[in-house]
Nucleic acid binder design. Structure first.
Ligand code: MN
Ligand code: MN
Ligand code: MN
Ligand code: MN
Lengths: 226, 226
DNA sequence: TTTTAATTTTAGATTTGTCTAAAATTAATT
DNA sequence: AATTAATTTTAGACAAATCTAAAATTAAAA
């Protein structure tokens, strides 16, 4: 049986959801895909049949090893294409997601390995997310949300949790990009907003909602070559 | 109504067929797509509904202006991606067709215009076929089949009519590529095979079937920059 | 100009992916 | 523990793209 575009999108979404919550629920997956619970149930039966997912009705579900492998390959393609679009075709980091959502379904394995080599084996995508290598190994990151960063502790932006283009546009406007070095100057308990200082720039204020979605590491470059 | 992948493949195939025969027949299209006549009829009704094709039942059909415009855009994408695969990712010209068959359906207009610029606005693809420009203008070529080339007249390979990978592999083996300068040394009336001479190489013999599918121009580069 | 052959279309099925509404199950509250 | 609420699944429907087999139409041959 074939793994269609829709199945690939389901696998990828399950993978991301189970990263956070271990096991995934029908409603959560439907929400994440912009579809309905009934449709998710239908699809799960097919994915179970194909032995990509462990699923018992009413009990929630998660990818098995095969499913995880498949999902990681799709994520690899998504992120490599995003990198290509930004680095080679001059797209902004807030414009690439939709296009990669289509490109990730191109099937040729050789294509993606050649693309990887052409790009110099990058290890993070334009949003700071790690790119799985050709064996599907995905490096783990130790990063915290900016909301949890202690006052005056230098850190470096290494990822963005909520990657809507509205969010990315807001960050762009405030000159916060991947790799930006910053520290928190002040925390306002009233609304949990923060004043953040970037070198050579006037301080900017970020809402708690924004801060929660900016991920930082202890001032260390997020990209190290292999 | 949406233009699906399958509809795009139909439009493209109709375009190519009508180049040759003016009007297209149900069976011809089915053969060209590896599908059945009944399926073609079904699809034609949808394409007519969408006003992309002029179709009266039992009378044959052809693309109207809208349909032609759509088809040319798909061809543009197909050929630009082929160029990218060969020139940037080091694929052989006989390996790229299947992959481009998928890539041509990626929808972003901005992507394809950026890709075009990134590649330096090439005007022919790796098989010598012209790449439509961003306005959809497609240059016409004056080329003849190698089978019709007069004896001892220098010419240059500018296109391949039958682009199966078997054909491309055979040409590769005989050191015949796009742009190769050659002339015919001898014609064998018995089977219409030809002896062809390429500079600095021993002469090679080509069957009539191959010769018919190798297109040449009067020894003039096929690619001229705009 | 009949008759026969080829082509094209219709009728009716099937598969895939989706939906809504109703039923079944599980979870949360009195 | 009984009732209510939320979640999940099933039942039944629909659109898209395909198929086979039969009917309609057109073209070719006798
Ligand atoms: Mn996708
Ligand atoms: Mn990304
Ligand atoms: Mn295609
Ligand atoms: Mn080509």
């Amino acid at each position: 049986m074939k793994v269609s575009v829709s199945k690939e999108d389901h696998l990828k979404a399950i993978f991301h959801l189970q990263q956070e919550h271990g096991t995934v629920t029908t409603n959560a997956l439907a929400a994440s895909l912009g579809t309905r619970a009934a449709s998710v149930t239908d699809m799960l039966k097919k994915l179970k049949e194909q032995k990509l997912v462990n699923y018992e009705r009413y009990k929630g579900f998660k990818l098995n090893n095969e499913g995880k492998k498949a999902a990681v390959q799709i994520i690899r393609k998504h992120r490599l294409w995003e990198y290509f679009l930004v680095k080679k075709l001059q797209f902004g980091w807030d414009e690439v997601h939709e296009i990669a959502e289509e490109l990730e379904h191109i099937s040729s394995r050789k294509l993606i390995d050649r693309l990887d080599a052409f790009l110099g084996h990058p290890d993070t995508d334009p949003h700071g997310d790690p790119i799985p290598d050709s064996q599907g190994r995905l490096q783990v990151r130790r990063q915290v949300s900016l909301a949890e960063l202690p006052l005056n502790k230098p850190a470096q932006v290494s990822g963005i949790a909520s990657q809507t283009s509205e969010m990315l546009e807001l960050l762009q406007y405030n000159h916060i990009r991947l790799g930006t070095r910053l520290e928190i100057r002040k925390k306002f308990p009233f609304d949990h907003s923060l004043e953040v200082k970037v070198r050579n720039r006037p301080p900017v204020t970020l809402s708690a909602q924004v801060a929660k979605n900016v991920l930082v590491t202890d001032d260390e470059p997020p990209t190290e070559k292999r």
